[in-house]
Design a protein around this nucleic acid. Structure first.
Lengths: 145, 145
DNA sequence: CTATATCCGTCAGAGAATCTGACTATGAAC
DNA sequence: GTTCATAGTCAGATTCTCTGACGGATATAG
Protein backbone atom coordinates (compact mmCIF):
# COMPACT_ATOMS: atom_id res chain seq x y z
CA UNK A 1 0.00 0.00 0.00
CA UNK A 2 2.03 2.91 -1.26
CA UNK A 3 1.31 6.06 0.64
CA UNK A 4 -1.14 8.40 -0.95
CA UNK A 5 -0.03 11.83 -2.00
CA UNK A 6 -1.70 13.52 0.94
CA UNK A 7 0.05 11.26 3.38
CA UNK A 8 3.41 11.82 1.75
CA UNK A 9 2.90 15.51 2.25
CA UNK A 10 1.94 14.96 5.85
CA UNK A 11 5.19 13.16 6.53
CA UNK A 12 7.36 15.87 5.06
CA UNK A 13 5.35 18.62 6.64
CA UNK A 14 5.66 17.04 10.06
CA UNK A 15 9.39 16.68 9.64
CA UNK A 16 9.72 20.37 8.84
CA UNK A 17 7.44 21.36 11.69
CA UNK A 18 9.33 19.32 14.22
CA UNK A 19 12.68 20.67 13.13
CA UNK A 20 11.50 24.24 13.35
CA UNK A 21 9.72 23.83 16.66
CA UNK A 22 12.70 22.12 18.24
CA UNK A 23 15.09 24.82 17.09
CA UNK A 24 12.79 27.62 18.20
CA UNK A 25 12.39 25.96 21.59
CA UNK A 26 16.15 25.56 21.88
CA UNK A 27 16.48 29.29 21.24
CA UNK A 28 14.34 29.93 24.28
CA UNK A 29 10.99 30.50 22.61
CA UNK A 30 8.43 28.11 24.01
CA UNK A 31 5.70 27.69 21.46
CA UNK A 32 3.43 24.80 20.61
CA UNK A 33 2.62 23.40 17.20
CA UNK A 34 -0.93 24.71 17.33
CA UNK A 35 0.27 28.17 18.27
CA UNK A 36 2.85 28.11 15.52
CA UNK A 37 0.24 27.19 12.92
CA UNK A 38 -1.64 30.34 13.77
CA UNK A 39 1.41 32.49 14.22
CA UNK A 40 2.96 31.77 10.87
CA UNK A 41 -0.09 33.06 9.07
CA UNK A 42 0.05 36.54 10.53
CA UNK A 43 0.78 39.05 7.80
CA UNK A 44 3.25 41.95 8.06
CA UNK A 45 0.48 44.44 8.78
CA UNK A 46 -1.50 42.21 11.07
CA UNK A 47 -4.29 39.79 10.27
CA UNK A 48 -7.80 39.41 11.57
CA UNK A 49 -8.63 36.56 13.85
CA UNK A 50 -11.20 35.15 11.49
CA UNK A 51 -8.72 35.07 8.65
CA UNK A 52 -6.16 33.33 10.80
CA UNK A 53 -8.76 30.77 11.77
CA UNK A 54 -9.72 30.17 8.18
CA UNK A 55 -6.17 29.75 6.98
CA UNK A 56 -5.14 27.50 9.82
CA UNK A 57 -8.36 25.58 9.31
CA UNK A 58 -9.68 25.86 12.83
CA UNK A 59 -12.70 27.64 14.28
CA UNK A 60 -12.56 31.26 15.35
CA UNK A 61 -12.82 30.12 18.94
CA UNK A 62 -9.79 27.91 18.63
CA UNK A 63 -7.84 30.65 16.93
CA UNK A 64 -8.86 33.07 19.65
CA UNK A 65 -7.75 30.63 22.31
CA UNK A 66 -4.33 30.28 20.69
CA UNK A 67 -3.93 33.98 20.07
CA UNK A 68 -4.67 34.57 23.75
CA UNK A 69 -1.74 32.35 24.61
CA UNK A 70 0.54 33.95 22.06
CA UNK A 71 -0.44 37.34 23.40
CA UNK A 72 0.18 36.39 27.01
CA UNK A 73 3.61 35.05 26.01
CA UNK A 74 4.39 38.32 24.27
CA UNK A 75 4.62 37.00 20.73
CA UNK A 76 1.70 38.95 19.33
CA UNK A 77 -0.48 41.90 20.19
CA UNK A 78 -4.02 42.85 19.31
CA UNK A 79 -4.89 46.21 17.86
CA UNK A 80 -8.18 47.62 16.64
CA UNK A 81 -8.73 47.40 12.91
CA UNK A 82 -8.97 50.98 11.65
CA UNK A 83 -11.17 49.92 8.77
CA UNK A 84 -13.76 48.02 10.78
CA UNK A 85 -14.63 48.62 14.40
CA UNK A 86 -15.91 45.08 14.82
CA UNK A 87 -12.57 43.58 14.00
CA UNK A 88 -9.18 43.54 15.65
CA UNK A 89 -5.85 42.91 14.02
CA UNK A 90 -3.44 40.38 15.41
CA UNK A 91 0.08 41.66 14.93
CA UNK A 92 3.50 40.23 15.58
CA UNK A 93 5.15 41.78 18.63
CA UNK A 94 8.84 42.25 19.27
CA UNK A 95 9.38 38.90 20.89
CA UNK A 96 7.39 37.26 18.13
CA UNK A 97 9.60 38.85 15.53
CA UNK A 98 12.68 37.42 17.22
CA UNK A 99 11.16 33.96 17.33
CA UNK A 100 10.06 34.28 13.74
CA UNK A 101 13.59 35.03 12.65
CA UNK A 102 14.89 31.88 14.29
CA UNK A 103 12.13 29.91 12.63
CA UNK A 104 12.83 31.39 9.22
CA UNK A 105 16.46 30.40 9.56
CA UNK A 106 15.59 26.80 10.25
CA UNK A 107 13.07 26.69 7.44
CA UNK A 108 15.77 27.85 5.06
CA UNK A 109 18.14 25.26 6.44
CA UNK A 110 15.65 22.40 6.04
CA UNK A 111 14.69 23.54 2.57
CA UNK A 112 18.36 23.59 1.65
CA UNK A 113 18.73 20.01 2.89
CA UNK A 114 15.74 18.96 0.88
CA UNK A 115 17.12 20.67 -2.19
CA UNK A 116 20.44 18.94 -1.68
CA UNK A 117 18.71 15.58 -1.56
CA UNK A 118 16.40 16.20 -4.48
CA UNK A 119 18.60 18.23 -6.74
CA UNK A 120 17.71 21.56 -8.26
CA UNK A 121 15.42 20.31 -10.96
CA UNK A 122 13.24 18.18 -8.76
CA UNK A 123 13.14 20.85 -6.10
CA UNK A 124 11.84 23.38 -8.56
CA UNK A 125 9.31 20.89 -9.86
CA UNK A 126 8.11 20.18 -6.33
CA UNK A 127 7.56 23.82 -5.51
CA UNK A 128 5.90 24.46 -8.80
CA UNK A 129 3.49 21.58 -8.33
CA UNK A 130 2.72 22.51 -4.74
CA UNK A 131 2.02 26.10 -5.60
CA UNK A 132 -0.31 25.12 -8.37
CA UNK A 133 -1.99 22.61 -6.15
CA UNK A 134 -2.62 25.36 -3.69
CA UNK A 135 -4.84 27.03 -6.24
CA UNK A 136 -7.41 24.31 -5.74
CA UNK A 137 -6.74 23.23 -2.16
CA UNK A 138 -6.35 26.54 -0.35
CA UNK A 139 -9.57 28.55 -0.20
CA UNK A 140 -7.36 31.40 0.87
CA UNK A 141 -4.78 31.33 -1.86
CA UNK A 142 -4.65 34.97 -2.77
CA UNK A 143 -2.59 37.94 -1.88
CA UNK A 144 -1.37 37.01 1.53
CA UNK A 145 1.59 37.95 -0.49
CA UNK B 1 6.14 35.99 2.67
CA UNK B 2 5.57 33.17 0.22
CA UNK B 3 4.58 30.02 2.02
CA UNK B 4 7.39 27.65 2.81
CA UNK B 5 7.41 24.21 1.32
CA UNK B 6 6.29 22.56 4.53
CA UNK B 7 3.31 24.84 4.80
CA UNK B 8 2.32 24.25 1.20
CA UNK B 9 2.26 20.57 1.96
CA UNK B 10 0.19 21.17 5.03
CA UNK B 11 -2.46 22.95 3.03
CA UNK B 12 -2.80 20.21 0.44
CA UNK B 13 -2.68 17.48 3.03
CA UNK B 14 -5.44 19.10 5.01
CA UNK B 15 -7.58 19.42 1.93
CA UNK B 16 -7.20 15.73 1.21
CA UNK B 17 -7.85 14.78 4.80
CA UNK B 18 -10.98 16.82 5.03
CA UNK B 19 -12.39 15.42 1.81
CA UNK B 20 -11.77 11.86 2.87
CA UNK B 21 -13.09 12.31 6.38
CA UNK B 22 -16.24 14.00 5.17
CA UNK B 23 -16.93 11.27 2.67
CA UNK B 24 -16.25 8.51 5.15
CA UNK B 25 -18.55 10.19 7.67
CA UNK B 26 -21.24 10.54 5.01
CA UNK B 27 -20.96 6.80 4.39
CA UNK B 28 -21.82 6.21 8.03
CA UNK B 29 -18.36 5.68 9.46
CA UNK B 30 -17.74 8.12 12.26
CA UNK B 31 -14.02 8.54 12.62
CA UNK B 32 -11.90 11.46 13.73
CA UNK B 33 -8.81 12.84 12.06
CA UNK B 34 -6.56 11.57 14.82
CA UNK B 35 -8.05 8.10 14.61
CA UNK B 36 -7.68 8.11 10.85
CA UNK B 37 -4.02 9.04 11.07
CA UNK B 38 -3.40 5.92 13.09
CA UNK B 39 -5.75 3.73 11.12
CA UNK B 40 -4.25 4.42 7.74
CA UNK B 41 -0.88 3.16 8.86
CA UNK B 42 -2.06 -0.31 9.77
CA UNK B 43 -0.48 -2.85 7.46
CA UNK B 44 -2.28 -5.79 5.82
CA UNK B 45 -0.96 -8.23 8.41
CA UNK B 46 -1.39 -5.95 11.36
CA UNK B 47 1.01 -3.51 12.89
CA UNK B 48 2.38 -3.05 16.37
CA UNK B 49 1.17 -0.19 18.47
CA UNK B 50 4.63 1.26 18.80
CA UNK B 51 5.13 1.29 15.07
CA UNK B 52 1.83 3.00 14.54
CA UNK B 53 2.80 5.61 17.09
CA UNK B 54 6.13 6.20 15.43
CA UNK B 55 4.68 6.56 11.97
CA UNK B 56 1.86 8.81 13.05
CA UNK B 57 4.36 10.78 15.10
CA UNK B 58 2.61 10.54 18.41
CA UNK B 59 3.52 8.81 21.66
CA UNK B 60 2.64 5.20 22.35
CA UNK B 61 0.13 6.39 24.90
CA UNK B 62 -1.70 8.53 22.38
CA UNK B 63 -1.67 5.74 19.84
CA UNK B 64 -3.02 3.36 22.45
CA UNK B 65 -5.76 5.79 23.33
CA UNK B 66 -6.81 6.07 19.70
CA UNK B 67 -6.59 2.36 19.03
CA UNK B 68 -8.86 1.81 22.03
CA UNK B 69 -11.45 3.98 20.37
CA UNK B 70 -11.04 2.33 16.99
CA UNK B 71 -11.38 -1.04 18.66
CA UNK B 72 -14.50 -0.05 20.56
CA UNK B 73 -16.02 1.23 17.32
CA UNK B 74 -15.22 -2.07 15.63
CA UNK B 75 -12.73 -0.76 13.09
CA UNK B 76 -9.74 -2.69 14.39
CA UNK B 77 -8.93 -5.61 16.63
CA UNK B 78 -5.93 -6.49 18.73
CA UNK B 79 -4.24 -9.86 18.46
CA UNK B 80 -1.16 -11.21 20.17
CA UNK B 81 2.00 -11.02 18.12
CA UNK B 82 3.14 -14.62 17.55
CA UNK B 83 6.75 -13.51 17.35
CA UNK B 84 6.87 -11.55 20.60
CA UNK B 85 4.70 -12.10 23.64
CA UNK B 86 5.18 -8.53 24.78
CA UNK B 87 3.66 -7.12 21.64
CA UNK B 88 0.20 -7.12 20.19
CA UNK B 89 -0.75 -6.58 16.60
CA UNK B 90 -3.39 -4.06 15.66
CA UNK B 91 -5.35 -5.40 12.72
CA UNK B 92 -8.11 -4.01 10.57
CA UNK B 93 -11.47 -5.58 11.37
CA UNK B 94 -14.40 -6.07 9.04
CA UNK B 95 -15.97 -2.71 9.66
CA UNK B 96 -12.59 -1.08 9.28
CA UNK B 97 -12.10 -2.71 5.93
CA UNK B 98 -15.40 -1.31 4.72
CA UNK B 99 -14.49 2.18 5.90
CA UNK B 100 -11.06 1.85 4.33
CA UNK B 101 -12.59 1.05 0.99
CA UNK B 102 -14.68 4.17 1.05
CA UNK B 103 -11.62 6.18 2.00
CA UNK B 104 -9.52 4.68 -0.77
CA UNK B 105 -12.17 5.62 -3.28
CA UNK B 106 -12.13 9.25 -2.22
CA UNK B 107 -8.35 9.35 -2.17
CA UNK B 108 -8.34 8.16 -5.76
CA UNK B 109 -10.94 10.74 -6.65
CA UNK B 110 -9.01 13.61 -5.08
CA UNK B 111 -5.77 12.47 -6.65
CA UNK B 112 -7.50 12.39 -9.99
CA UNK B 113 -8.67 15.97 -9.50
CA UNK B 114 -5.19 17.02 -8.59
CA UNK B 115 -3.79 15.28 -11.63
CA UNK B 116 -6.35 17.00 -13.81
CA UNK B 117 -5.29 20.36 -12.46
CA UNK B 118 -1.58 19.74 -12.64
CA UNK B 119 -1.32 17.70 -15.76
CA UNK B 120 0.39 14.36 -16.08
CA UNK B 121 3.95 15.61 -16.14
CA UNK B 122 3.72 17.76 -13.05
CA UNK B 123 1.76 15.09 -11.20
CA UNK B 124 4.48 12.55 -11.84
CA UNK B 125 7.13 15.05 -10.80
CA UNK B 126 5.25 15.77 -7.58
CA UNK B 127 4.99 12.14 -6.62
CA UNK B 128 8.57 11.49 -7.53
CA UNK B 129 9.82 14.39 -5.43
CA UNK B 130 7.62 13.49 -2.47
CA UNK B 131 8.71 9.89 -2.49
CA UNK B 132 12.34 10.86 -2.58
CA UNK B 133 11.77 13.39 0.14
CA UNK B 134 10.31 10.66 2.25
CA UNK B 135 13.69 8.99 2.28
CA UNK B 136 15.01 11.73 4.49
CA UNK B 137 11.89 12.82 6.33
CA UNK B 138 10.26 9.55 7.27
CA UNK B 139 12.26 7.55 9.80
CA UNK B 140 10.03 4.71 8.84
CA UNK B 141 10.41 4.76 5.09
CA UNK B 142 11.05 1.14 4.41
CA UNK B 143 9.06 -1.87 3.51
CA UNK B 144 5.67 -0.92 4.79
CA UNK B 145 5.35 -1.80 1.22
C1' DC C 1 -33.61 56.85 9.77
C1' DT C 2 -34.96 52.57 11.24
C1' DA C 3 -35.35 47.55 10.77
C1' DT C 4 -33.21 43.50 9.45
C1' DA C 5 -29.66 40.75 8.27
C1' DT C 6 -24.82 39.88 8.46
C1' DC C 7 -20.36 39.80 10.11
C1' DC C 8 -16.49 40.03 14.04
C1' DG C 9 -15.13 38.42 17.97
C1' DT C 10 -15.90 36.50 22.65
C1' DC C 11 -17.92 33.66 26.59
C1' DA C 12 -19.20 29.19 28.42
C1' DG C 13 -18.97 24.45 28.56
C1' DA C 14 -17.78 20.01 26.86
C1' DG C 15 -15.11 16.62 24.52
C1' DA C 16 -10.95 14.96 22.13
C1' DA C 17 -6.08 14.51 21.72
C1' DT C 18 -1.72 14.79 23.51
C1' DC C 19 2.02 14.64 26.77
C1' DT C 20 5.25 13.14 30.97
C1' DG C 21 6.20 9.88 34.31
C1' DA C 22 5.82 5.50 36.46
C1' DC C 23 4.87 0.62 36.12
C1' DT C 24 4.47 -4.60 34.46
C1' DA C 25 5.89 -8.11 31.65
C1' DT C 26 8.73 -10.07 28.17
C1' DG C 27 12.93 -10.54 25.64
C1' DA C 28 18.00 -10.19 24.84
C1' DA C 29 22.96 -10.10 26.25
C1' DC C 30 26.27 -11.29 28.66
C1' DG D 1 20.47 -15.74 35.95
C1' DT D 2 21.29 -10.80 36.61
C1' DT D 3 21.01 -6.83 33.94
C1' DC D 4 19.48 -3.89 30.44
C1' DA D 5 16.32 -2.86 26.64
C1' DT D 6 11.63 -3.21 24.57
C1' DA D 7 6.23 -3.41 24.21
C1' DG D 8 2.55 -1.90 26.12
C1' DT D 9 -0.44 0.08 29.84
C1' DC D 10 -2.11 3.07 33.87
C1' DA D 11 -2.64 7.61 35.97
C1' DG D 12 -2.89 12.39 35.82
C1' DA D 13 -2.46 16.81 33.71
C1' DT D 14 -2.42 19.90 29.92
C1' DT D 15 -3.54 21.44 25.44
C1' DC D 16 -6.45 21.68 21.61
C1' DT D 17 -10.73 21.75 19.47
C1' DC D 18 -15.56 21.97 18.86
C1' DT D 19 -20.81 23.54 19.30
C1' DG D 20 -23.87 26.84 20.81
C1' DA D 21 -25.14 31.30 22.41
C1' DC D 22 -24.25 36.11 22.75
C1' DG D 23 -23.08 41.46 22.23
C1' DG D 24 -21.43 44.92 19.41
C1' DA D 25 -20.68 46.92 14.68
C1' DT D 26 -21.68 47.27 9.80
C1' DA D 27 -24.42 46.95 5.68
C1' DT D 28 -28.64 47.06 3.15
C1' DA D 29 -33.51 47.87 2.19
C1' DG D 30 -37.11 50.50 2.50
Amino acid sequence: MALNTGLLMFVAHRAMERRVLDAVAAAGFAITAAQARIFQRIGPDGTRLGELAEQAQVTKQTAGFLVDQLERAGYVERAPDPTDARARLVRIAERGRAAGEVAAGVVAEVEAEWAAHLGARRTAALRDALERLREITDPWAEGDQ
